[in-house]
Design a protein around this nucleic acid. Structure first.
Length: 489
RNA sequence: CGGGGUGUAGCGCAGCCCGGUUAGCGCGCGUCGUUCGGGACGACGAGGUCGGGAGUUCAAAUCUCCCCACCCCGACCA
């Protein structure tokens, strides 16, 4: 058991907070609900970000930046959209402060804005106001823009990385000439999200469609990737929306097609946020702390010298430096911990921080021309001849990457249940938790009733799953869709 | 916004009932020395508007009142 980390089995929420803080991923900001992402946490986010940035650039997308401030009136243009976000917008009403003799620093009432400005909760509205200027002809399409930005959603109850008032994300906003093309874009991005989650973050995800109730405000259709956390709850890890013509209609964005006819533009938007960091923590973490997938880990290998004195340090350095240099040339990210802490302290520290591989080098190793590698995922100790390390380390990192994915997948499968009746459904949600895969009649009434009864929601409608012959778990009517139910974050 | 609680060193707390030395303890931090293969030890040391304001009193961390902040539990969300 790690010092200062509440065991998962005792209190999962405390475990999560302990890990985030002790591993120095993040800290609370001075304003309630805000978060400081510390360097170690930011490197993790940066690696995720870089991975995805390469993926979208390879598929023809480009980055741009739109302003943080949005005229209040923009939000109101799209009815569903305003409904979805109005309750959580930060509003700028004044532009300056002044020093008051009695009350100190106060808002200067003279500086009140004629039109209030909102801080973006998402950027559809500003972006489409600009697209109106940029799009005239089908020759201007498609526009495939992404931005990396911060957004603000004033949340009541917040949790580090999972739900904070301000968070970092990417938001892609594309404009297309046809509905088919927009739909293809929506699904292509969903596939990129699946790859990001599974191939880089080692998080198995279920892809599917959101119900009308759960979808993004302003979208025709929302697709998502959903993952199961270590406490068997569901986390929406990314969403890709087909916005249809909702925003082009709201902002009057039309183009002339090849037949010289005016048409409304088709839109998509899609995003993943720093919430992904929360997912990595909760999918892979254990009672010792983080377990990071090598592909996104800030340090893939940590070298811990074991030495009595200055001279001992020198010997370790002399012995292992050529090996480390070779490994670095091979593209491995290595951290050398020469700090004054004891080796035992360092072992625990770096395990808490989730470094996939530890390389121990001490006098006994130097004498016998070898070193010890320890896997974070399994705890296995591997003694290798010095000249084997460079070749073996990348192979071990790959194994760890694969192993973490497989463990998470196995966990999800073990906790995904089939049920025979609604009472069985309720019992399963209450006592076992996890996901339930079952039929749904497609009625919102059913969805709401189940939510009221059990707090479980439809995480997604499975694409391409045949529901013929299946019955709705609640109503007994023929099922329209196969869905995944679960309690969500 | 409704119910419950907490503010004392960087962090976690004791002291408060029953006012009275120089406000303590653990962790952490600094210097020095010994250590170092699973969270080392010793010596010395730094660090406080006791959340803020007013009141009672010879005397307030302690009693009274007001204010402020934060945390936990119930209706939204990536």
């Amino acid at each position: 058991m790690s010092k200062g980390i509440t065991p998962q089995s005792k209190d999962y929420a405390s475990w999560y907070t302990d890990v985030v803080r002790q591993a120095e991923l993040a800290d609370y900001g001075p304003v309630k609900g805000t978060m400081v992402i510390r360097p170690y946490g930011f490197q993790l986010w940066d690696n995720i970000k870089e991975s995805f940035d390469k993926m979208i650039k390879a598929t023809g997308h480009v980055n741009a930046y739109f302003p943080l401030f949005i005229p209040k009136s923009f939000l109101a243009r799209e009815a569903e959209h305003v409904e979805g976000f109005a309750k959580e917008c930060a509003v700028v009403t004044h532009t300056r402060l002044k020093v008051d003799d009695d009350h100190g620093l106060v808002v200067d009432p003279e500086s009140k804005l004629k039109e209030e400005i909102i801080v973006r909760p998402t950027s559809e509205t500003v972006i489409w106001s600009m697209y109106k200027k940029w799009i005239q002809s089908y020759r201007d399409l498609p526009i495939l823009i992404n931005q990396w930005a911060n957004v603000v959603r004033w949340e009541m109850r917040t949790r580090l990385f999972l739900r904070t008032s301000e968070f970092l994300w990417q938001e892609g906003h594309t404009a297309h000439a046809t509905a088919e093309e927009a739909q293809k874009e929506t699904l292509d991005i969903l596939e990129l999200y699946r790859q990001l989650a599974e191939d880089y973050m080692a998080i198995p995800v279920i892809t599917g469609l959101k119900t009308e109730f759960e979808k993004f405000a302003g979208a025709d259709k929302s697709y998502c990737i959903e993952a199961m956390m270590g406490d068997k709850r569901a986390l929406q890890a990314g969403t890709s929306h087909n916005l249809g013509q909702n925003f082009s209609r709201a902002f009057d964005v039309t183009f002339q097609n090849k037949d010289n006819q005016e048409e409304l533009v088709y839109a998509t938007s899609w995003g993943v946020s720093t919430r992904l960091v929360g997912a990595v923590i909760m999918v892979h973490g254990d009672d010792k702390g983080l377990r990071l997938p090598p592909k996104i880990a800030p340090h893939q290998v940590v070298m811990v010298p074991i030495a009595q004195n200055e001279n001992g340090h020198l010997k370790v350095r002399e012995f292992i430096s050529p090996v480390l240099d070779e490994m670095r040339k091979g593209g491995i990210r290595i951290y050398e911990d020469w700090s004054d802490n004891s080796p035992g302290f360092k072992f625990n520290e770096w395990e808490m921080k989730g470094v996939p591989l530890r390389l121990e080098v001490g006098p006994r190793d130097i004498e016998s021309g070898q070193a010890v590698l320890v896997r974070r995922d399994t705890g296995e100790k591997i003694i290798l001849e010095k000249n084997m390390i460079t070749a073996q380390a990348p192979r071990l990192l790959e194994e760890i990457q694969k192993g973490l994915f497989e463990q998470a997948l196995e966990f999800r499968e073990k906790n995904t249940h089939e049920v025979s009746s609604y009472s069985n459904f309720r019992d399963t949600i209450k006592n076992k938790g996890g996901f339930i895969r079952c039929g749904w009649d497609g009625a919102q009434k059913t969805e709401m009733k189940i939510k009221e009864d059990t707090k479980a929601t439809i995480r997604c409608i499975l694409n391409n799953e045949d529901s013929s012959g299946m019955k709705c778990v609640y109503s007994g009517n023929p099922a329209k869709h196969v869905v995944i139910y679960g309690k969500a974050y």
